[in-house]
Design a protein around this nucleic acid. Sequence first.
DNA 1: TAGTGGTCTAGACCACTAA
DNA 2: TAGTGGTCTAGACCACTAA
Lengths: 235, 235
Amino acid sequence: MSRAATLGERIRGEIETRILSGEWPPGHRIPFESELSALYGCSRMTVNKVLAGLAEAGLIERRRRAGSFVAQPALQSAVLRIPDIPAEIQGRGEAYAFELIDRRTRESGAHEPPAAGLMPGLALLDLTCRHLADGRPFAYEERLISLAAVPAAAQADFTAVPPGTWLLQHVPWTQAEHRITAVNAAPRLARALGLPAGGACLSVERRTWRGPETLTYVRQTFRGDAYSLGARFSP
Amino acid sequence: MSRAATLGERIRGEIETRILSGEWPPGHRIPFESELSALYGCSRMTVNKVLAGLAEAGLIERRRRAGSFVAQPALQSAVLRIPDIPAEIQGRGEAYAFELIDRRTRESGAHEPPAAGLMPGLALLDLTCRHLADGRPFAYEERLISLAAVPAAAQADFTAVPPGTWLLQHVPWTQAEHRITAVNAAPRLARALGLPAGGACLSVERRTWRGPETLTYVRQTFRGDAYSLGARFSP
DNA sequence: TAGTGGTCTAGACCACTAA
DNA sequence: TAGTGGTCTAGACCACTAA
């Protein structure tokens, strides 16, 4: 089945076990690199790579001259997968469909969403669209794309490929910021999602950069009764 | 200011720049370790650590005998900080208060939340409580703690320390699963949060394990108009 | 100022796998 | 089967910092 563990993996496993079992509580000093290399009969480099990995994972903290210490339990955090909507729907075994409701080119003004962080006077592509799963409304999407940062978007055919998927395939990004909120559906949104007015929706806002430049800002709104975000995490 | 970059950091930066600028697109084969070590005049070990780091970060994929390749753009994902509620509120400069509404010891039955993954017949501590910011309702919390896994919880004083904070300080965990949804507040919940019935709320469910054993299951419900989850992420 | 961690070298052997 | 990446060795020098 699984190949034999390497020496580094074995050392890492034994240290992790002592930490996670509580045998080495937060603040406990773990053996120095020199002690561990003597203990396992290996070079210090092998131990160094193990401890560097544990530090990167947040399980230990390392201080020159002082040693390595079991870290205080991390604030819980979760790696959340922000899905590509077509892939998400097809992964459920449902038929994906996409509607481009509106597409216009305009300049950014004073009333852009503050979270978009767009200066006035930028050339924008302003898109409104809807994602459907098995013919039922799944998500409503409002998106702004900076044409200065992504000029090729002006020629893209967003009736054929949803803009999120197109961007993922064509434009590298360096940073993204997300904001997840719950909102009561306003009448227009409720109609678009096939919900009673006031129905709870999950709103995911995302702003994506390349370097200092905002590439795109999007707000995707999902029916609260049909969608949830899931995440699994280890410390 | 910042100290000079090490050679490894410089190599990593130059490769990242080529990938993120699109000069090396997805699927592009990057130079072999031997080529890079010749190019930078360093040992192969130095290059190996750089490429291993890039692979761990998901920017490249490595295949024996074939080489290292720029990875397809990652599905967007986000590192979400699941906050310790008292720390979150105090971080906003607001006064934190906590109310323990109900505390009982009971056995798990057939009607536990399916996401809790609790077998029937387990000894449970069942807690209901409310978090307040500057005297206003902030979050409603329903929590189950397995007394088999965390016997010390039976003696803890949860009128003084909220259970989430107590657990974070006392119990190491190995894995957590989260589920984030939007819900319309049912009448009882709306009263507890000071919302009109049907108001949108953000619900965060979390199940936490140590090894194979469930430690705790919690559902925290936040006023949608007063709370959002934020996340910042690089690929 | 003494001792830790951070980084690097110049090798080595091997598992894996694409050709 | 040839060549890559994966891992390891036995050193070295240095920056940083706790004592």
